[in-house]
């Protein structure tokens, strides 16, 4: 046998065609966003097995029917693990069909969520998600608890309005700030501005969202453009995990801002409104706060910063956010926003 395991370049047309054919044959949808793909070719240079990665996730695995049962997946996965290790990524996730999950369970992965018998989501830590939930459970409070999840890119009066509303209607609010550093405003700044912005609300507890809430692993299409069906799939997976998180914190309601413009957040809201109640969690969609005849949103703030209209953001943001953006410390972030072509969330 002279099989060859090698990387597949996005520019290798012949290999790409074989890749598409193999994925289609095995009934797997090819993800739009992949950062690395490898494959095993047989002696006639025919592609017989493949696997890809995107960030810390591994996906799009397929083995040709005629070559199943020979351990080719083990070779592909070993290769991808080694490559991820070279990039410094050790905490990894796998997306796969439910009936293939068992192969990954034999290779050191553990299932943490399942969507509809269609998708299984696994990680390579025996107790990763479990210990995350137990850590959160330490801040569990008696009484009515609600959750708010925000990217706060950056924190505006709109975010503040949503949190105030949740804080007024509940005994405790668990506020999750997306800790993935894929936004124009870096996480450390977003985190600080959120904490300063809600410091006077005693029943609000801030959490870093970690890898299990709207992260590049659970919800890649939140950060990178993708098709509607894909966004819905990711949103459902994200909510399957959120169910366990809500259980750990006794959360009975999630507050979300109404979404007039962004496609991905709009779809996410729809999916939440439909599936959260099935899990016994109320989904409260709160209309946007308006200031000066315009709905306040972080996209609008970024647009103003992009256009160099710093003064314009003042009525839309709390004092702490204004202080930050008008200070010299914010110059690198202001510059990044100015230089970005598209600052609105798609």
């Amino acid at each position: 046998m002279s099989d060859t395991l090698t990387a597949i370049s996005p520019h290798d047309k012949r290999a790409q065609q074989q890749l598409d054919a193999l994925l289609e044959q095995e009934g797997i949808r090819r993800d739009a966003n992949l950062d690395y793909t490898c494959g095993i070719f047989d002696e006639d240079y025919k592609l017989v097995a493949t696997g890809s990665s995107f960030g810390s996730t591994l996906r799009c695995f397929a083995v040709d029917k005629s070559r199943q049962g020979e351990g080719l997946l083990n070779q592909v996965l070993s290769h991808l693990l080694e490559r991820q290790a070279e990039r410094g990524l050790f905490h990894l996730f796998v997306y796969t069909k439910c009936d293939s999950a068992r192969f990954f369970k034999d290779l050191g992965f553990y299932e943490i969520a399942r969507v509809d018998g269609a998708l299984s989501f696994l990680e390579n830590r025996p107790d990763g998600f479990g210990s995350y939930c137990r850590r959160l459970a330490k801040s569990r409070r008696e009484g009515r608890s609600a959750a708010v999840v925000m990217n706060a890119n950056p924190f505006t009066l709109g975010h503040r309005y949503l949190v105030e509303r949740a804080a007024a209607e509940n005994d405790t609010v668990h506020l999750f700030v997306l800790s993935e550093d894929m936004s124009l405003v870096p996480f450390e700044v977003r985190w600080r501005l959120v904490r300063e912005g809600v410091a006077d609300l005693p029943n609000v507890i801030c959490h870093r969202s970690g890898p299990y809430i709207i992260s590049a692993a659970t919800f890649p299409s939140y950060f990178l453009k993708d098709e509607e069906a894909v966004i819905q799939g990711h949103a459902r997976l994200d909510l399957a995990l959120f169910r366990s998180i809500a259980g750990a914190l006794n959360i009975t309601a999630r507050y979300v801002g109404e979404e007039p413009s962004s496609q991905v957040t709009g779809l996410y809201n729809q999916v939440m409104a439909r599936y959260l109640p099935q899990a016994g969690i109320a989904c409260r969609i709160v209309p946007r706060l308006a200031a000066g005849g315009q709905a306040v949103s972080a996209s609008t703030v970024r647009q103003a910063l992009h256009d160099g209209r710093l003064e314009d953001i003042r009525p839309w943001v709390p004092e702490s956010t204004w202080r930050y953006f008008s200070s010299p410390e914010a110059e690198p972030v202001r510059r990044a926003i100015r230089e970005q072509a598209q600052v609105r969330h798609y």
Partner: peptide, 27 residues
């Protein structure tokens, strides 16, 4: 720092070591 050696192929083993939290934690 975290490091890895080995493969998942038959007759091999994949070993990952990471900084511990006091003591050896073997999975």
């Amino acid at each position: 720092k975290a490091a890895m050696a080995g493969t998942l192929e038959s007759s091999d083993a994949l070993v990952t070591v990471e900084p511990g939290e006091g003591g050896i934690e073997l999975n």
